[in-house]
Design a protein around this nucleic acid. Sequence first.
DNA 1: GATGAATGAGAATTCATTCAT
DNA 2: TATGAATGAATTCTCATTCAT
Lengths: 207, 207, 207, 207
Amino acid sequence: MPPAVTKRARRKAERPSEILDAAFEEFVLHGYAATRLEDVATRAGVTKGTIYFYFDTKERVFEEMVRHKSQSFLPGLKDYALTLRGSATERLRGLIAFTYGHIAENRESREILRFLIAEGGRFPDLVDRHYEEFVAPIIDQFREVIDQGVAAGEFRNAPAAGFTEIVMSPAVLLSLWSLLFGTRKEVDFVAFTEASVDLLLRGLAKD
Amino acid sequence: MPPAVTKRARRKAERPSEILDAAFEEFVLHGYAATRLEDVATRAGVTKGTIYFYFDTKERVFEEMVRHKSQSFLPGLKDYALTLRGSATERLRGLIAFTYGHIAENRESREILRFLIAEGGRFPDLVDRHYEEFVAPIIDQFREVIDQGVAAGEFRNAPAAGFTEIVMSPAVLLSLWSLLFGTRKEVDFVAFTEASVDLLLRGLAKD
Amino acid sequence: MPPAVTKRARRKAERPSEILDAAFEEFVLHGYAATRLEDVATRAGVTKGTIYFYFDTKERVFEEMVRHKSQSFLPGLKDYALTLRGSATERLRGLIAFTYGHIAENRESREILRFLIAEGGRFPDLVDRHYEEFVAPIIDQFREVIDQGVAAGEFRNAPAAGFTEIVMSPAVLLSLWSLLFGTRKEVDFVAFTEASVDLLLRGLAKD
Amino acid sequence: MPPAVTKRARRKAERPSEILDAAFEEFVLHGYAATRLEDVATRAGVTKGTIYFYFDTKERVFEEMVRHKSQSFLPGLKDYALTLRGSATERLRGLIAFTYGHIAENRESREILRFLIAEGGRFPDLVDRHYEEFVAPIIDQFREVIDQGVAAGEFRNAPAAGFTEIVMSPAVLLSLWSLLFGTRKEVDFVAFTEASVDLLLRGLAKD
DNA sequence: GATGAATGAGAATTCATTCAT
DNA sequence: TATGAATGAATTCTCATTCAT
């Protein structure tokens, strides 16, 4: 018989992630340097000492938090990509819709971007790891579809095919826009995405 | 005889801008919170007290620094726009080349963007002012050319014409790329710009 | 077995009052503004940080210190008043002796007066609270005895009966004298009190 | 012909006293330590440097200010005393009325008292000088009249005759009251003085 | 495991004082 | 005489980190 997982034990197992969730909120609110671990602890419902039981330093808390919050996108993308059917154009359109939705509208994703930009100088490893685990796979996914489209004669062999990042740039812009202006300057996300897709597909199209 | 500008007076007049230049470098190096005004002072060749003679608080130093460093682009853009000749396509190409060069390659411009992303929550007025004085005029400049191209029948009336920001998004991506990876992942700026221009102009072109 | 009060716990419970005692001495020595919390800490045998663990600001330390040091007189007065016997004259004499002894000779009481005079502008609430908790009850105590004396026909209904504060004024003068001249100009406290009592009682006496 | 005193020269001669007047107001407002010489300068319509031209240090400014503001009472008292006529009782009553009016109601006199209490520890010479020049002469004036009253058989040889300060104590109390409570607890000055005089004269009277 | 009292290095800010002009 | 830019010592307050319980 497996040992009963008591509530206490369960909570214990969840502590680190509760702390990281709380840390995320506080770091979002105040930035890395201005965040007090004391506030993180309070928000997580523990005390300062407990944080130090799980994490060595404030830097470590920050790093782990970024990792913790970065893990949600990738699996979803891969699964989604497998469901794509139809022409390269249709598949690219699907990919864009999915990715834009995540990059531009997902709050956590957006704030992680802010952290990386703001504190990247202090945490270069974090940035590089993020690139490997998050950015590169997305780019690869796009590149694959585009290459297939070129091979299939749907897309012209545009120079942009060698800079797949360009395809993601409107989403990044949207994300930045949101980081900068919050709710002060709202953008019509759907219309913006539509316009971007239209421009990109026309730009890639043969003829 | 013109009144002799004494060495002391000359230095005095330059002090604030010397301090702001030093502040820029320190803020780039360490970020807002981790920058010590003492280091700014040392870099500027003065003492802490002198900074406080010219600026009330560290926040003020930061704000003034951002303003100080933001003033270089606009006049150049307007002047350049006046020299543009040829078709809307040619003019748009020129505008993109000029703007991308500034946004993506100019170090100060790029670091200002980092400051706004990182500290925008603390300085929303700064962000909004930056939008008014810096972002909006650029967008307007692009919109004007695109509208003319549409009116002249060179460009189709793409939905992207209503979201001129999209045209700038590859430049913003480049800028961010540089902020994130510094010299660790270099991008061929010229080729990237070429690819973007190609994609955009094809995307906008009639037919 | 009673729960052992550990050394640590005991010390912890006493910390705030140890800090306030130390603060009192330092504030007496240098005044509010010129007192360094660092010195208070050293005197209390702790470090700066500890003070801030218990008190938010220097102002708070000052306020709490005044409260802490103001609490000793009142209970004694009430108890003492209950032991008074004899004619109103005798009881008034007893009250005066007791009160003068406290106001004029008690060092803490005297220095609190100095603090209130010196820093009252910055801490009006402190002054008002002191009045309610300290001054008013004393005045009431005197008023009661005087009124009884008037009712009993021992005292004439002098206008001073309506300004009981007058009865305390020699004690306040003594207190001030001590604050101003310290040991440089000693006053014979007993003789002074005797003279005051003599003057007051003669002034109040019927006929 | 005497040299015309130009406005500039006249102003120059008045500078130190203008500075001391301004210093008085600032010291009243903030206390010694919290007063900024910069604010004194602004109030006096000069700059910081000018203050240092006339006074060596902030301490000197404070000391000179106290002297400057202490000089107004004495001559008036002596002149007034010379006009007193009638019985010792009448003369004492007159003296009390005059002195109380000054001590208790004169703002400058009252604030000087506050300065001496608050900063006496730092400026003992100032306190002693104030005693010699201000307090002692007043006491002497009272003692003279009281002694004359005793000699003339109007007053009994009360022990209080040896502590003339007692006679001034109600005035000091009033002054302190005002320092502590400002306008928050007003006292009927005339009635209070009447009650004090009544009590004192009855206390001193023969029979 | 968890707590929270205690530490102490560190940073922003203030302001009396100086001195070149 | 007067100015005001510049200095730098001093002080409050913060907070990551430690560790006895």
